[in-house]
Design a protein around this nucleic acid. Structure first.
Lengths: 298, 298
DNA sequence: CCTATTTGTCGAAATATTCGAACGTTATCA
DNA sequence: TGATAACGTTCGAATATTTCGACAAATAGG
């Protein structure tokens, strides 16, 4: 195998781009003979004529033209590699791990991540969607750099992000809607409630009223929404996640005597706000920004 | 800018892949200290720790992991570059220029080119679709390596490829079809004929009978087919190109007293059969092969 | 505490790169 | 036709880089 060098390809390209060995030498700040030596050595190694001298100018051969295009890609990629290294050297994170409660509005998350990816194209983000204490657990274990959850874990300093309203809903055709009156707890207790499992402990969420006789437990808010939309029960769901279902009539708010709506606050917590890199900080900013601008509908 | 070397990246990868400086040295056939020196120099240049020594083993850092993936691509691309060079050095053509008469069945051409591209993925083919003497002219000028046309140019040695039948057709609703009898030359002379211009001279095709009063001249067979299919006249068209139109009823053969069908032979000619590279030869074979197997329908 | 294994360091030798200067060829212009 | 300028090529010497072997330092496992 021939083991050609990036530098050789660079010189080869320079010769073609600047139209000659002399001009290339000028542009690259090397002597003509260096360029000459390198390119000829490259040709010898490959056993392939890349350039041919016609008159007193060097011209690409057909093979040279083909190789140049490929070599160009190679050189570009190499330079890109060093650019990435530079970013990383300046402290940008290679990867960024975030745990986000499923209650956080997904379009806000998407917006924030998209913006992040334009500013930090090389940091790869690992997203963990959690429910309740699941995120806190990962923060304790040092598995994530950033957490968005319903509370701030012990010993950490969190920042209030937004309030998410939960409302009790069921499918419009559900029995609870056909009673024609405001509902009390006994009415609810007769129907099936669908609750979301805590992603850490695997236990049911026991905060708030849970007096229903029948109860199904699912792992994801999305699953719950799907089930309720199909008339399989009722639940308190985050308004941020069921906007479409409400407007399109797949879900309707239950008329409860009280407790129809509940407020839950989301907090942003850094695993280590001192050592957080620029991408981590930026994502924190973006998540806050998005949360603020999301107040438009609720 | 840091100007890292392919060799440095190769060594870095080797260390990771073989699980240590020592093992890498073994695998790469270099001394440990060379590897050590190169990798450390790379890290110094990038100002970025790629490996960290925990205990007595070298482990990838997060940044190192990211860089390794990119570097792997770089190395692979470099090796591919040299593979291509090797192919080229062994005589494979960087580009292959072919002139093919539009009469040659397009699906045969497509098949042949597809097969060629799997066997010679790096030769780029330049296709010129010609009509009559257009291809010959390009052969004389040395513009193409291979020619498929209706005759073999003076001084070249061609090989018979296939016979293509031209039939006189018009749209089913065309006046010529409503006469209800076999047609004679006077009938045709009263209608508009659509002929294809020679792509070299720019003159009309004057071979065969051309007694029509009205005459339109177009540059491509495809244009002619489109026009005839819309009832704009009649023409002799290669049966290989109008199979669909005939079966789907957009074209119907004219009932002529005589001369309704004409045979044209296609020949394959090499610009220089001695100096023809492997890809050129192979394409020739494929074109013949395809022509042979295409006899199924006519 | 000792040993085997592995990474890190140092100086010397081998190798590769770079440069300037001289040389040969080719195009341009008078 | 001949002078001249623009190039590519060649050569030897200076310089930089890579490689190696030997040894030091660190560490896991007995």
């Amino acid at each position: 195998m021939s083991r050609s060098t990036l530098e050789q390809w660079r010189m080869f390209r320079a010769v073609v781009e600047h139209g000659g060995f002399a001009q290339a030498a000028e542009a690259i700040h090397k002597s003509q003979s260096s360029i000459n030596h390198a390119v000829h050595k490259l040709q010898d190694q490959l056993d392939l004529k890349l350039l041919e001298v016609v008159g007193r100018k060097a011209q690409l051969t057909a093979a040279g033209e083909l190789m140049l295009r490929r070599a160009g890609q190679l050189i570009d990629q190499a330079e890109q590699l060093e650019t990435i290294a530079e970013s990383l050297a300046q402290g940008e994170e290679a990867q960024l791990r975030v745990a986000i409660d499923e209650v956080y509005p997904q379009h806000c998350l998407a917006e924030a991540l998209e913006q992040l990816s334009t500013e930090f194209p090389y940091t790869r983000v690992e997203l963990v969607e959690t429910v309740l204490s699941g995120g806190a657990e990962r923060l304790f274990k040092g598995d994530v750099d950033l957490l968005v959850a319903g509370d701030v874990p012990q010993g950490f300093l969190g920042e209030a992000l937004m309030d998410v309203e939960f409302i009790a809903v069921a499918h419009p055709a559900h029995a609870l809607h056909s009673l024609g009156r405001t509902l009390n707890l006994q009415d609810l207790a007769a129907e099936r409630q669908i609750v979301v499992r805590d992603s850490a402990t695997g236990r049911r969420i026991d905060s708030g009223w849970l007096g229903a006789e029948q109860r199904w437990t699912v792992s994801h808010v999305a699953t719950s929404i799907t089930m309720i939309s199909r008339g399989m029960g009722f639940a308190w769901l985050p308004i941020t996640r069921i906007r479409d279902e409400l407007t399109e009539g797949r879900l309707r708010e239950l008329a409860l005597e009280r407790g129809s709506r509940r407020q839950v606050s989301l907090f942003l917590t850094y695993a280590d706000s001192d050592k957080a890199g620029p991408a981590t900080c930026r994502l924190g900013e973006l998540l806050i920004e998005q949360a603020r601008s999301d107040l438009s509908f609720d």
